[in-house]
């Protein structure tokens, strides 16, 4: 019987002592937290996608409250969450331009030949670092779906050998942009539909050898598009998304058909 009592006293006493210590620690070592951070964090969607360029929703909430970060950086949240944030913080709600990801390569299986049989890990970074990738074009989409796996909402699909982003599903988090070893994925305004679907910096003849729908740098589109809405960057035509472009002739006149409406 004494053993039972002894045990009860020892364990109970230790428990009481620890409890006391914890109570003191909670009082003296308490970290004060701004209640507004928690409030803002509640509003944010909690997807932790990182699209706002902060480490996650909690970090963004902290930045809004303590550093005065802009409240329109949460792309997945949309207008609804923006309005709630405006209400909570007193900032004015100004919707940021809705941007979506696009893979600027149109070299599908039948257009872009492969230069060897790749038998390694089915991952773009791995394929890219094996002899520069199996695609003859050293700039084009390899189609091993690294971006699709990185996408938190399944907005990317590999169709006919290349990655395609479904713009209506994209939440603008840019996870795919960071993953692509070829740096082919760009963020473009959702409203814009005309794109140059090529990222090859090579000269025309080299592009022609590697892909039938690659930009050959003929500059025809740059002359047809008003206000320099398409510009040459080296040997590649690039759409300037800050300028208006709604001109179907650039699509019709492009010799390799690499300008498309999506």
């Amino acid at each position: 019987m004494t053993a039972v009592i002894q045990t009860a006293i020892t364990i109970g006493g230790a428990g009481l002592a620890c409890g006391g210590l914890l109570a003191l620690a909670a009082k003296f070592l308490a970290v004060e937290e701004d209640p507004r951070v928690e409030e803002v964090n509640e509003i944010l969607p909690g997807a932790n996608c990182g699209g706002c360029a902060y480490a996650g929703c909690a970090a963004y909430a902290e930045a809004i409250v303590l550093e005065g970060a802009a409240i329109n950086l949460c792309a997945p949240g949309g207008a609804e969450i923006l309005n709630k944030l405006a209400e909570a913080t007193g900032q004015t709600a100004q919707q940021a331009e809705h941007k979506v990801a696009i893979v600027l390569c149109g070299g599908e299986v039948e257009h872009a030949p492969r230069k060897f049989d790749y038998n390694g890990v089915a991952d773009c970074q791995a394929a890219h670092s094996t002899g520069g990738g199996d695609k003859a074009c050293t700039y084009g989409c390899l189609g091993y779906a690294s971006c699709a796996r990185a996408c938190p909402v399944g907005a990317i699909e590999i169709i006919n050998g290349i990655a395609k982003v479904h713009p209506d599903l994209c939440i603008s988090c840019q996870a795919c942009v960071k993953t692509c070893p070829r740096k082919l994925i760009k963020m473009v305004p959702y409203a814009r539909k005309i794109h140059v679907m090529c990222s090859s910096k090579d000269k025309g003849p080299a592009v022609k050898k590697a892909c039938t729908v690659g930009c050959i740098g003929c500059t025809i589109c740059t002359k047809l598009a008003e206000d320099e809405a398409i510009k040459m960057e080296g040997f590649l035509a690039v759409v300037d998304y800050d300028k208006d472009l709604d001109n179907d002739t650039v699509i019709e006149k492009c010799p390799p058909n690499c300008i498309v409406r999506i």
Partner: peptide
Amino acid sequence: RPLVQHMRRGKTQVMINRRN
């Protein structure tokens, strides 16, 4: 299994992550 290929891939990505 392409074990060493996985390792190479992993080493590249760890380096990229460290840099970021």
